[in-house]
Simulated scan of single mutants.
Amino acid sequence: MAHITVDTLTYTQLAKSFDHALLRPEMTTSEVVLGCNLAARYDVKSVCVKPCDVRLAAETLAGTSVLVGTVISFPHGNSPTSIKIAESLQAIDDGATELDVVINIGLLRGGEVQKVEDEVRAVVQAAKKRYLGVLIKVIFENAYLSREEIVLACKLTERAGAEFVKTSTGFAATGHTIEDLRLMRESVSERIEVKASGGVKTLDQVVAILQTGTTRVGSSSTDKILDEFKRVRGL
């Protein structure tokens, strides 16, 4: 993936790496609709909305190629497993096809790795029983984790059957780092994809992210980044 540059990327390749984030707690219904319309206009991969906005996003994006994703136990990951499952099933019923699930960070940091793995597996199995095609991304919140804990989180996520490992919620003190993305890519098999989020604001950042083998980028600056790409490429 190191050969990726602004000049080698097509607009579609870049746009389809974006999960357009619509997660600000103060975001209104009309702002969610505007954000979904922006995502459709730029033809990104998905929107990532708050659970309460999933049905609205699904209705707004009906007939487009933009997928609807949401967050589970966001941003701290502290809900009981039963609530994470219930929230996941509700999101699927409302029209989400991608779920970004926050792990129980405290359990992981306390060395209770099996409990974390069991919880992720329970969410994955329940969600896929409801809708087999649902895609599960597991959020680690790397700002709170050591390198060793990030590796453990990668391994347990893969064993539990999820499809993605993800760096951050965007609500911690720090977000993605290139070092963390490389570590995560090295710590999972090719079956697992990597998502960067938290502090993604420029085209240069996105190119550097994609060079690590990361395939998805969560950002609320999607339009600015894609507009910058068009300017640079003269599109």
Rank of each mutant, 00 (worst) to 15 (best):
E186Y: 03
F171E: 03
L14G: 12
E87S: 14
S197A: 10
N104S: 14
K201Y: 07
R182F: 14
G77I: 15
K155V: 15
L34C: 05
L135E: 06
S189Y: 07
L226F: 13
V71H: 11
P75K: 06
S187H: 13
G218E: 04
G198K: 05
N37M: 11
L38W: 01
K166M: 06
I92K: 09
I150P: 00
I209T: 11
I4P: 00
V151G: 11
D53Y: 14
D94Q: 14
V116P: 00
R41G: 06
N37L: 14
E87V: 13
S73I: 15
I105W: 01
A196R: 09
K16V: 06
G213T: 04
I178E: 04
M27P: 00
V134Q: 04
L22M: 05
S30I: 14
R231I: 08
V71M: 09
E87M: 10
V165W: 01
F229D: 04
R216W: 05
C52Q: 14
S189P: 00
K84C: 12
G69W: 06
Y42K: 09
S82R: 09
N142Y: 02
F229P: 00
A91Y: 03
E141P: 01
E149F: 07
K195N: 08
L108G: 06
A126Y: 03
S65F: 04
S197M: 02
V101R: 01
T29W: 11
A58V: 13
V116T: 11
S46G: 08
K128G: 02
G106W: 04
V188T: 13
T212R: 03
L61R: 14
